[in-house]
Design a binder for these strands. Structure first.
Lengths: 192, 192, 192, 192
DNA sequence: TATGAATGAGACTTCATTCAT
DNA sequence: TATGAATGAAGTCTCATTCAT
């Protein structure tokens, strides 16, 4: 039989893992910690996930779908893209990446160990998809005239670099650094 | 008389630690791994560094001085800053950050766990210093007229974010991604 | 439901620790040795005791209660104390100390390193209590006339010294040395 | 060639070892500690003693000669033994044992591990010699009439037990406990 | 399904010993 | 002879995983 089990508990474990892996890295995070965070006994973790590595893999790959949905929603609107819409999109991206500090760290963890984690392929695929999307926007914007002449690939790499680096550019975790600090700069990468 | 402690060996251990901490994180990296990378016996590591945490601390803080020197050299030239000089500086920064993949990963590791690593203060201090430097450039550039009107603080945050994120924006470790891919985008953050 | 922690196993570890700490001292005794003696895996020791020092602490302090009970039982009889009863008590003490060779050695180990082991306070307290008890007996005996005039404090120190030293006065571990060898001498310390 | 070397340094190491082995036991005491106490480099210890065990062996056996001399001096006087002389002798013994707290602990350490230390034979031999001496005194005293009828063997065991235990009967290391506290009790063991 | 006692691989670290200087 | 850098055996302890309950 598949996995009837309690999906609620499975989700609790997942969220606990996501949080703790992000905060402490893979090795420092223990199954016991995760169980405690999820409010269950550590033995139960193994009821829902084969082992620690399997849980980590899920924690890395599962959230990508959320990112993807974010992109696809906007992609349908490509034909009707305007500068106003781009500005809104950039704001959404910044909020999205700023809020996912934990998850970004997990991703960085995996990028840094490509041989160790095969999940990197899923990340790679997502990054390609995201850059393609940005390149489409640039081309559309240039064609429509609301963006200056640009190298789409350069913009896509630069914009992703910017988003990935935002949360690393300040060490304090106070929420003093608002989206607004970064929004103007992000738009400059589009030449606006 | 016995052989004195060899600074060469100390440096070998340091470089091995820097590389492996960056690649695998703190916990996954073992003293044995470091010793092997450095071509010595694991016991020798303890001849040169009190313990693993002390070695890590050095790996985090020692390179900062190099960064600092980089900045200070340019700072003396502030009065004679021109667009050409800024372009050269940006190119240097990009090369510098792109080459220090290992070290950047260590820094990210520490930023991500501020409670765990007190060395973060040294990082904080450096980041402040770096941003101040960028803000000076922006003000100078605006005054001299080779940069458009800008918010110096925003530029400094955005530029640091960009530099920190560059190496995370692509997962393949091929050296296909040259400085040139990022240089134009970096300059855009200055409004150029 | 899982198996609850077994008090039996806890006791096995305790006894193994008591024996081996006594025979080999603290540092020479390894957790592995203790586990082997207790017939368990070394990891299990840490299920029942936080660490080696904690186990040692228990090995030092727990048996004191047994000593105390021994004393208190007799203390209730103080009013009806006679020479016959004193002789029985001394015989009990000698048997008790002779049988606890292991434990005495642990105590000696702690006494010898007062800065290292704070448990020494519990030992101190017990020693005071024991000497007080002996002093009561001496006073009672002198009052009742079955003991000659004596300095109660001197007797109490001498008697405790004698009991502590018995097991160190012969190096062979044969059981040739019976209680009887020491009983007459112990009574002489009471002036009998 | 034998061992010309510096006898002074050899002696320094010996004294340092005696002190530290006594204070901390065998395992806890490191060669580095001993070297530091002796004011030399730890490598030099190996110039004078083959290894740690060899140094320990010397620390256990060498002082026995001093004990022996103490006894032999008195033995020559056996014919002229009197109660006065016995009292003096007992006082000397008590002082001697009270002062050698460290060394007594080393001896206890060896007694407790008879299989580990072959030096125990030297200890055994000394203990036999000492008890024989005490037995001679008892017999002489009984013959001369200044001691009551006694079992010489019992007295010798009891007296040695008392001397060995004295320093263990109080945990504080203050010098409040003078010889006098124990002298009367020691004499009681002789029936005086 | 949920629990946690039992296990042992593997990490960090200490320290006796060797040996080049 | 004196030194201390280099080494690795061995100890303590953590923690992923198994499995009986």
């Amino acid at each position: 039989m598949a996995k009837p089990k309690s999906n609620e508990k499975r989700q609790q474990i997942f969220l606990a893992g996501l949080k703790l892996f992000a905060e402490n890295g893979y090795s420092k995070t223990t199954i016991k910690d995760i169980a405690q965070e999820a409010g269950i006994s550590f033995g139960t973790v193994f009821t829902y996930y084969e082992n620690k590595a399997a849980l980590f893999r899920i924690c890395v790959t599962a959230p990508l779908q959320e990112f993807r949905n974010h992109i696809h929603d906007a992609r349908e609107d490509m034909a009707s893209m305007t500068l106003i819409k781009l500005k809104n999109l950039v704001e959404q991206h910044i909020n999205f990446f700023m809020e996912r500090e934990h998850y970004l760290r997990v991703i960085q963890y995996v990028i840094g160990q490509p041989e160790r984690f095969k999940e990197i392929e899923a990340l790679d695929e997502f990054a390609n998809e995201f850059r393609k999307f940005i390149q489409d926007i640039v081309r559309t914007g240039v064609n429509k005239g609301f963006l200056p002449e640009s190298n789409p690939e350069e913009v896509s790499y630069g914009y992703l670099a910017f988003l990935m680096g935002m949360r690393l550019s300040f060490t304090d975790h106070a929420n003093a650094h608002q989206t607004s600090t970064f929004k103007n700069q992000a738009l400059r990468l589009f030449g606006v």
